[in-house]
């Protein structure tokens, strides 16, 4: 039988851990709710933006736009932008994203790797890979400012032909219990990317472009990319918090089980000790009586 004071010490430790995991669970829940609101709004913005781009694409003949965005050039370098968290304790959230990124990167002879999130950089380093650029301290607070920085950098790299394809690997938020890693092509934008837009043109009138189609399009695409990156950053943050929420919820549940077991053991040990004492006293009394 175990020592009572040792058991009590362990009970204390588990109770304290449970308090921490429970607090982290509550924190992750409130953060997740916060990012959900932003996601909802941004989704309606993106829907309208996609609609407008679809409108332009369908009202413009194929060769009228000699834009650099809408064609796929093969054989160039591919940029992979991998979004993970800065902190751990969120279950398999980071490993799932990194595994997916490594799998996809094998398909390309030459890749450039950008890592957002400390954990991603660590996991890549464990595989002997060094990201070409790292971004830290942003995974919990996705801002539009950051999205514009990232979007701008991506478009610049694409513009000066350093890379010919850009992918973002992130965790898509489906529900609070389901998040899945996704590899999304950001550039080049293809016409078919807009095929799924629910689009019913009311009339076939020609659009007027001010000043001209190309310039409008060149303004629109970077803005679309920024919106997309912002959406992805927020989804990642929501997924991270959901993953942490689930991890902390099960940790709290495990702690509860351990506490119950330890308490049982303590009771058993105490009862055993009392029984022993009574037996000893009884034995001593009968021994005295015998004298």
């Amino acid at each position: 039988m175990e020592n009572i004071s040792e058991l009590k010490q362990r009970l204390n430790a588990v109770t304290q851990t449970r308090q921490i995991t429970n607090a982290m669970y509550l924190l992750a829940t409130s953060r997740m709710k916060h990012s959900m609101q932003n996601i909802d709004y941004n989704l309606s913005y993106m829907r309208k933006l996609r609609f407008a781009i679809r409108d332009i694409v369908s009202k413009t003949k194929h060769n009228a736009l000699s834009d650099p965005f809408i064609e796929l050039t093969e054989g160039g370098k591919a940029l992979f932008f991998v979004i993970t968290s800065d902190k751990g304790l969120c279950g398999g959230y980071n490993t799932a994203v990194v595994n997916m990124a490594m799998q996809k990167m094998e398909e390309y002879p030459e890749t450039v790797l950008y890592s957002l999130g400390l954990k991603g950089t660590e996991l890549f380093a464990a595989q002997g890979m060094t990201p070409d650029d790292n971004w830290y301290g942003a995974s919990q607070k996705p801002s539009l400012h950051l999205a514009r920085q990232i979007g701008g950098q991506i478009v610049d790299l694409y513009d000066d032909c350093t890379v010919s394809e850009v992918y973002i690997v992130y965790t898509e938020y489906v529900t609070s219990t389901l998040q899945r890693p996704v590899c999304k092509r950001i550039l080049p934008l293809l016409r078919r990317d807009f095929d799924d837009v629910d689009y019913h043109p009311q009339n076939d009138t020609r659009l007027i472009y001010e000043p001209d189609p190309e310039q409008v399009y060149n303004e629109m695409v970077p803005q679309y990319i920024t919106g997309l990156v912002y959406d992805i950053l927020m989804q990642s943050a929501a997924s991270e918090n959901a993953a942490r929420m689930n991890a902390m919820q099960s940790a709290t549940r495990n702690a509860d089980e351990m506490i119950a077991k330890l308490q049982e053991k303590i009771h058993a040990a105490r009862q055993l000790a009392i029984t022993n004492e009574i037996t000893e006293i009884a034995a001593a009394t009968s021994a005295e009586g015998a004298v």
């Binding site: 409108d55 009138t205 659009l207 007027i208 472009y209 001010e210 310039q215 409008v216 303004e219 629109m220």
Partner: peptide
């Protein structure tokens, strides 16, 4: 404000996309 100057829009404007 567009690249080429100011632009006013009233109701019944023809379908247009303008870069600001």
């Amino acid at each position: 404000e567009t690249e080429t100057g100011q632009l006013a829009v009233l109701r019944e404007h023809a379908p247009m996309i303008a870069s600001l």
